[in-house]
Design a protein around this nucleic acid. Structure first.
Length: 597
RNA sequence: GCCCUCAUAGCUCAGUAGGUAGAGCGCGCCCUUGGUAAGGGCGAGGUCAUGGGUUCAAAUCCCAUUGAGGGCUCCA
């Protein structure tokens, strides 16, 4: 099922109406506590609802408790939700002291915009809902009666700022988020899930497992990879690079900075400048840190004349780019200011293009699935008729190829009509993080702009110059974001092939150190990443620490093991498998590495 | 960038009328040599994010800055 279909199903559910109605009850409670409050909008959302208010003062967490209590009192009234269709004049009369409602009415009546400010095809019918004396402009639907809302099954979560109509030039309102369910048990389960999500937050795990840090002295949004995290990243990159080479890509390296002229030609200085850092002067020339790798790869392509015989050319680079992101949007590894894309640019002939797109998407899925990622949303973004570069037939061909690739891969996708960038249509794959937020990883997008600006050509079999299709693609997206998603996906317990330390040898007493090192050395020679815990601690403490570090294998060695040339194998699941020969363990580890356990 | 909240030892956090700081873990040393999730003792470690201000006195109150968290906007 696509995200759109899921959304529709949700909107028809009882739970959706419960949440929407709970938002009304919350607004009534807020108005009782703050009679001067101006109310804006309050829809049901995933897992709950929110309502935006313009209040005389900032709300505190204590206020939320008071509002919740007031809501329970209201619910006990057992009032009905009554719908009434009204005229615009009646509506304006009812909401004279509610300026935001008046603006909504105005928008709806003009037939131009809905409550979020999005355009509407025709003016809708206006309706109000009344419950317990509280009247709100609302299209519904709601539950019939407040008794359908379980007073033990909702909770106000937090308060946050939100611009009126999402417009940063309009007033900042206070948004109260809440969650509501059918039963107390469902609410508890939800709260437990949220708790669980916080436990697998990559920022928390990054610290606990000593994977990375972001240090204010270095700068916001700039990541320091510690040895553990660097190992995981290295393994992920090494795997991907090998796969790229196997799949016909050529690797490239390009510098971190380039002359202003390059970015003028590419157009970045016109339409991407606000995301680029200030230039540095070198010998009277301005140089910019690269926000993208494309111009460099294009220069590699252009370094010599290209024949139709050598296409497609696929140039791949783990290229580190720097982009200015507004301070408020930075988020752990998922939104940073300096990051490394697994970037590649494909240059191909029109006749090769559909197969090339197909192949790229298949390759992308192959890579993602190797990392155990299958839970993502696919989007196809098509041409914005008002703003696009390139030729219409090319757009149509490209869009068709993208669509067919998705269909052949049997990937459900959402169509984002007109959502493409001006330079070309694209496929995006977005992953869900632990807290349910979507982050874009993979993208496959055409670029009709750069190929034109740089005048890309190849010589056809007719001896004439032709313009190749240029496709920009990143599969993991950026290593930083990908690692963030990966950490949360595995909750830090990386599969054996990715675990920074695969096995910890745990000597029971000092006299077993020599044997422990012998075992470790044997395993290292076989290619495993192994450490020996030589600390002056009891075995139990070492097991606990290894387990907390989510190390896949714990190899306990004492007198018996040393005598028999064995190790006592314990898994991070807590399972104790007893003594096994070193060769036996090695065979098991090798098997699990291949099986991506 | 905007709204709200926050910043105390390497980490997690106490510090509740303003009177110059505590715990656990971790770290160092010592004892202990223990068979599947924390053995014991002693010790070192903090200009209470930074800079101003109020006050006899500021971790505590006020302002600014930096950084972080939750959202909003943005993410061609």
């Amino acid at each position: 099922m696509s995200a759109n279909a899921r959304q529709l199903e949700y909107q028809q559910s009882l739970l959706y109406r419960i949440r929407h109605s709970t938002a009304h009850v919350m607004a009534e409670a807020v108005l009782q506590l703050f009679p001067d409050a101006k109310i804006a909008i309050g829809p049901a959302i995933e897992d709950g609802f929110y309502y935006d208010f313009d209040l005389p003062r900032a709300l505190t967490p204590e206020d939320l408790g008071a509002i919740e209590e007031r809501m329970r009192v209201i619910l006990r009234s057992g009032s009905d939700f009554n719908k009434k269709v009204i005229t615009a004049a009646e509506a304006q009369d009812i909401f004279t002291s509610q300026p935001y409602k008046l603006e909504l009415i105005d928008g709806l009546v003009q037939g131009s915009v809905d409550e979020h400010g999005n355009p509407l095809k025709e003016p809708p019918e206006l309706s109000i809902y009344e419950s317990d004396g509280f009247v709100d402009l609302c299209r519904g639907p709601h539950v019939e009666n407040m008794r359908q809302i379980n007073e033990q099954a909702f909770r106000l979560i937090n308060v946050a700022g939100a611009y009126w109509r999402g417009d940063e030039t309009r007033p900042m309102l206070q948004r109260i988020y809440g969650t509501a369910w059918n039963t107390r048990e469902e609410l508890d389960a939800y709260l437990w899930r949220m708790e669980e999500a916080r436990r697998r937050d990559h920022r928390k795990l990054g610290k606990e497992l000593d994977l990375f840090s972001i240090n204010p002295e270095v700068g916001a949004g700039l990541v320091l990879w510690h040895p553990n995290g660097a190992m995981v990243r290295h393994l992920a990159e090494a795997y991907c690079k090998d796969e790229h080479i196997k799949n016909g890509y050529d690797l490239a390296y390009s510098p971190h900075i380039g002359r202003a002229g390059l970015w003028e030609t590419s157009g970045h200085l016109v339409w991407y400048k606000e995301n680029m850092y200030a230039p540095m002067q070198i010998d009277d020339e301005a140089y910019y840190a690269k926000p993208m790798n494309c111009p460099f790869h294009i220069q590699i392509y252009k370094n010599k004349t290209r024949s139709y015989r050598e296409l497609p050319i696929r140039i791949a680079e783990w290229g580190t780019v720097y982009r200015y992101e507004r301070s408020g949007v930075l988020h752990g590894l998922l939104r940073v200011r300096g990051f490394t894309q697994d970037d590649a640019h494909i240059f191909c002939r029109p006749d090769q293009m559909p197969e090339e797109i197909d192949r790229t998407l298949q390759f992308c899925l192959h890579i993602l699935r190797h990392f155990g990622l299958g839970n993502f949303h696919a989007y196809l973004s098509t041409r914005n008729p008002d703003k696009f570069a390139g030729e219409l037939p090319d757009w149509d061909m490209a869009t068709q190829a993208l669509r067919q690739a998705l269909e052949r891969a049997e990937l459900p996708f959402d169509l984002d009509e007109g959502g493409a960038a001006f330079y070309g249509p694209k496929i995006d794959l977005k992953m869900i993080d632990a807290l349910g937020r979507e982050w874009q990883l993979s993208t496959i997008q055409f670029d009709f702009n750069l190929s034109e600006r740089f005048g890309l050509e190849y010589t056809g079999d007719d001896g004439q110059p032709h313009r190749p299709f240029m496709v920009h693609r990143a599969l993991l997206g950026s290593m930083e974001r990908f690692m963030g998603v990966l950490i949360e996906h595995y909750a830090g317990a990386f599969p054996v092939w990715l675990a920074p330390t695969q096995a910890m040898v745990i000597p029971i007493a000092d006299r077993h150190f020599d044997y422990a090192h012998l075992v470790a050395q044997q395993l290292r020679e076989a290619g495993l990443r192994v450490d020996v815990d030589e600390r002056d601690d009891r075995m139990q403490a070492k097991i606990r620490d290894a387990q907390n570090m989510k190390i896949p294998y714990m190899l306990v060695v004492g007198d018996m093991e040393a005598a028999a040339g064995q190790v006592a194998l314990r898994l991070r699941s807590g399972e104790n498998l007893g003594a096994i020969s070193v060769e036996g363990f090695l065979a098991r580890a090798r098997k699990e590495i291949v099986e991506l356990v």
